[in-house]
Design a protein around this nucleic acid. Structure first.
Length: 191
DNA sequence: AGGAAGATCTACT
DNA sequence: GTAGATCTTCCTA
């Protein structure tokens, strides 16, 4: 399957968030392959977005938000790592948060990582999928457009329809715009 | 030193 | 379905 190019991410975060639905995240751990289809995303802007990590300006921990589109931005909230992909037009900041996946390859391995039996609760939340796929701070800044990366995003045969949108989840200061996108009816969306 | 943060789990009504 | 405890950085004072 074809890896998404840098150009794909070099657009408005909202556009990228919508188009990432139905794509597949491939995580390589040693010789094991874990993968899952993206079923839920949220868009975050730069300094105009009070919920964004970029809102208060460039800091050491968030500087990758201004970096090349297609890089990973990973940070900790309430004890969980959250997976974001940098997406923005030239000279700005922005990311797309990956909120939920539908597991494809390596389900056994994910069950081991998560210590749950229920497939449905394996990756149906932003903190859960990072644990299932062994994603943490070490992958911050990783370029997902390179074929040999430990984590890549590829096209798939899925043609998502029934895309629904809502306000972002858990955000204390949201924008007056619906920036969460998910596949309606999919069993793996977070709520 | 103290607190907030894009969440999750558990234990209930 | 909601409520409360707890999770681990990084920020602010």
């Amino acid at each position: 399957m074809k890896i998404l190019s840098r150009k794909f991410y070099a657009r408005n975060p909202k556009t990228v968030a919508i188009e990432l639905l139905g794509k597949v995240i491939v995580r390589k751990v040693g010789n094991k392959k874990l993968s899952g289809m993206i079923v839920e995303t949220e868009a975050y802007y730069g300094d105009k977005d009070p919920a964004s990590r970029a809102y208060k300006g460039k800091k050491k921990y968030n500087s990758v938000m201004w970096d090349l589109p297609g890089k990973l931005f990973i940070y900790m909230v309430h004890g969980y790592w959250l997976l974001n992909i940098v997406a923005h037009e030239k000279d700005s900041a922005g990311v797309v948060l990956i909120r939920a996946l539908e597991p494809l390859d390596g389900v056994d391995e994910m069950i081991k990582n998560r210590r749950v039996e229920n497939i449905r609760s394996l990756t149906n939340g932003p903190g859960k999928l990072t644990k299932a796929m062994q994603i943490d701070k070490k992958l911050n800044g990783l370029d997902v457009t390179k074929r040999n990366s430990e984590l890549t995003v590829v096209k798939s045969g899925f043609r998502p329809k029934n895309i629904a949108r809502s306000y972002r989840i858990g955000v204390t200061k949201d924008l007056p715009e619906k920036l969460r996108f998910y596949l309606k009816g999919n069993n793996f969306v977070s709520r």
